[in-house]
């Protein structure tokens, strides 16, 4: 027995465009979706749960993560209820739901709060550099240390607990009995999805989108590796320097295309961008772009006199690492992969 909660829809509206109330339950969206099958029939069920306010159903569901927003459901919805956008909103809502700190929800719902967070971090970085008397070497050194430290701590204190919560919501709460060994058996699925996002290929006409996404993921991870482990900014190794250049160029070109797309709203997926979407692509773009320029400055020996360039990069980096990665859209990357993994486990059970 479930109680209907009409106020829930209003909460979801805060996470995205809210046309879904118009749904008259024809099921067209589910039927046109090329990712649905007998085991996973969405998005109508999620629309229904959102309308009725059955939040249990949504928290325990993996459906929002299984959707890659090709937009077919939205363009063919007879009531123009835009189920695809709802799935997007639900992903944002779930991100907030999984996050034990509660910050994710605040950041996503309130643009003001997000801007505030960005400004605070920026001020923090500037304050720190003033404290360090704008000493390039120290700042860059600490910047590198910060990278390593933040990865470790964000992962340990935020992402891991949140993934754990996700696991609790989708496996434990619904009472699914999974043998321990299954988690290992299906682990390869997690890796495959995480690095290839191969499921997107199931969507019609999205080969390019998938390919760009794939390159971006690899570019990003490689740049992360290059800067953190191989110490791109500090190295003299020509190969590593070149590698870093290529990676950063790839990132800022692809993200530039993504931003352009969001501005043009040429695809269904781009029609209703939320601040969190903008932050993600723009910061990723800035990350690649500033890293590139910083290295250029280093190579041209300009960095000493242009510490502001590195500071700019560092601000972007800190914001990225402390806001976007743990609480923003970046987490989709993990949640989605884990969702595939959990879904596989559920199906095996």
């Amino acid at each position: 027995m479930a109680k209907i909660n009409p106020d829930f829809a209003k909460e979801i509206f805060k996470y995205g465009n809210g046309d879904f109330n118009a749904c008259y339950n024809c099921g067209n969206c589910t039927a046109v979706c090329s990712l649905t099958d007998e085991h996973n029939s969405f998005p109508r069920k999620m629309v229904r749960a959102s309308v009725l306010g059955l939040d249990e159903k949504i928290t325990t569901s993996l459906d929002p993560w299984l959707c890659y927003y090709c937009g077919d459901c939205a363009t063919t919805c007879p009531r123009e209820a835009n189920p695809g956008e709802l799935m997007m909103s639900l992903r944002r809502w779930l991100t907030a739901k999984y996050d034990w700190t509660g910050l994710s929800g605040l950041l996503q719902k309130s643009l003001l709060f997000s801007l505030f967070a960005f400004i605070i971090t920026a001020i923090g970085v500037i304050y720190y550099s003033v404290y360090q008397n704008f000493n390039v070497e120290t700042i860059m050194h600490h910047g590198h240390l910060f990278e390593m430290l933040s990865i470790a701590s964000v992962f340990t204190f935020i992402i891991l607990p949140n993934l754990f919560r996700m696991w609790y919501f989708v496996i434990i709460k619904p009472g699914i009995k999974v043998k321990f060994i299954t988690y290992f058996k299906e682990f390869q699925d997690l890796l495959i999805h995480m690095f290839t996002q191969k499921r997107t290929l199931g969507c019609d006409d999205s080969q390019t989108r998938w390919f760009m996404h794939l390159i971006l993921v690899f570019g990003y991870l490689a740049l992360l590796f290059t800067t953190v482990v191989l110490d791109w900014f500090g190295t003299e190794n020509l190969f590593i320097i070149l590698l870093g250049y290529i990676e950063s160029v790839v990132i800022f070109i692809i993200t530039f295309i993504f931003v352009a797309g969001r501005i043009q709203k040429n695809k269904e997926v781009n029609k209703f961008s939320q601040p969190s979407d903008w932050f993600f692509v723009i910061w990723l773009f800035l990350l690649g772009f500033t890293a590139f320029i910083v290295r250029v400055f280093i190579d041209l020996d300009l960095i000493e006199n242009n510490i502001w360039m590195y500071l700019f990069h560092l601000i972007v980096l800190v914001q990225w690492a402390l806001i976007i990665v743990p609480f923003g859209k970046w987490t989709h990357f993990l949640y989605r992969s884990f969702a595939m993994y959990f879904d596989k486990i559920k199906q095996v059970v």
């Binding site: 339950n25 024809c26 099921g27 067209n28 969206c29 589910t30 039927a31 046109v32 979706c33 029939s41 109508r44 063919t76 007879p78």
Partner: peptide
């Protein structure tokens, strides 16, 4: 509602829908 219709080899049709 029928979401899409596909044709099979012998001219039969495959109708895809969500059984509400």
């Amino acid at each position: 509602k029928i979401g899409k219709i596909e044709e099979t080899e012998n001219g039969d049709l495959k109708l895809r829908y969500e059984d509400i």
